[in-house]
Structure formats: structure tokens, C-alpha cells
Amino acid sequence: MRLHRTVVAALGALALVTALPASASAANGTLHYVNVNGDDFSTANPVNGECYLLVSGAAHVDNGTDTTATVFSDHGCEDVLGPALPPGSARDFGAPVPHSVMFS
């Protein structure tokens, strides 16, 4: 009887663990940017699919991650601003500057 309870408990725990949603994947590396005021910012290992605000707009973006970064002219990651930045690439921006970024 004791073995039966142990097996049932182990199977229950296994079912609970496998039923949990997978954790969100993240880009490995760091996004660095310089805003229009010359201030430096960085975000390490950003979560794919999340919208990140670029404080005061970015004059320069350096995608030091292993994932493509798409920049947007608005604050809500809706209006794409130019081509996406592939992993390891950087770009300077004039007007308009990006105000948000998302990784995919």
C-alpha cells in the first residue's frame, strides 16, 4: 500500500509539472541604446514578444542579443520604424526616432 501511495504521489507531481506553461523565451544578450538626450540604457535578456519602451526615444540602438529586434515609432510596439535589427547589428536614428522595441 505504501508503494502505491508513493507512485500515485510521484505521478501527480509529474502531471502538475508538465501541466505548467512553458516559461517565456528570452533573447540572450543585451540591447544597448542611447536616447536623444545622450543617456545610455540597456536591457539584458529581453523576453521575446514583450514591448519595451525606449526612454525619450533612441538616437542609437545596438542589438547585442541573439534575436531580431524590431523598433517602433510609437510607445506601444505598433508602428514599425524601418527594417528590423538582426542580432549583433546597430543603427543610428534621426527623425523619427524609435520609442519602443520588441524581440522575436
Rank of each mutant, 00 (worst) to 15 (best):
F103P: 02
G94E: 08
G94K: 07
G88E: 12
V34F: 06
N45Y: 08
L81F: 10
V101C: 05
V80Y: 11
S104R: 09
L14S: 13
L20P: 10
P98M: 06
V47I: 03
N63Y: 01
F103Y: 13
P21A: 10
A22Y: 04
T18R: 01
D62C: 13
G57K: 04
L14M: 14
G12Q: 13
V36G: 04
G76M: 00
A95F: 00
T67D: 14
H4V: 06
R91Y: 04
N37Y: 05
V97E: 03
S104V: 05
S73Q: 05
T65M: 10
H75Y: 09
L20E: 12
D79F: 12
S23N: 11
L53V: 05
V61M: 02
L11Q: 13
R91G: 06
G88Q: 12
D79E: 09
H32V: 04
P46Y: 07
E50W: 01
S56E: 15
R5Y: 10
D92H: 13
S89Q: 06
T6V: 03
R91N: 08
S104E: 10
T18S: 05
N35A: 02
S100C: 03
S25V: 08
G76Y: 00
D79M: 06
L81S: 04
N35V: 03
A9M: 15
G82C: 10
L16N: 12
L31N: 12
P86T: 11
G12F: 05
V8F: 15
A22S: 08
G29I: 07
Y33M: 05
S89H: 06
L11K: 12
A9V: 14
D74G: 01
S42L: 08
T67N: 13
G57I: 04
D92E: 14
L31C: 12
G82R: 13
T6D: 12
A10G: 09
V97G: 02
F41A: 07
M1S: 14
A9D: 15
G88V: 08
A59M: 08
L20F: 15
S100M: 02
D79I: 03
V47D: 06
G82E: 12
S42V: 02
A10K: 12
R2D: 14
V7P: 11
A13D: 13
S100A: 11
G29Y: 01
T6C: 07
N35T: 03
R91H: 08
H99W: 01
G94D: 11
D39P: 07
C51V: 00
H75C: 00
A9G: 14
L54D: 06
Y33H: 06
A95T: 04
A10N: 08
L14C: 11
N45D: 15
G82N: 10
R91I: 11
A59N: 11
G38M: 12
V71Y: 01
V101K: 05
A90D: 06
T30Q: 02
C51Q: 01
V61R: 02
A59G: 13
T18A: 09
F93L: 07
L3K: 14
L14E: 11
G38S: 11
R2G: 08
N28H: 13
L3E: 15
A15Y: 07
L11Y: 12
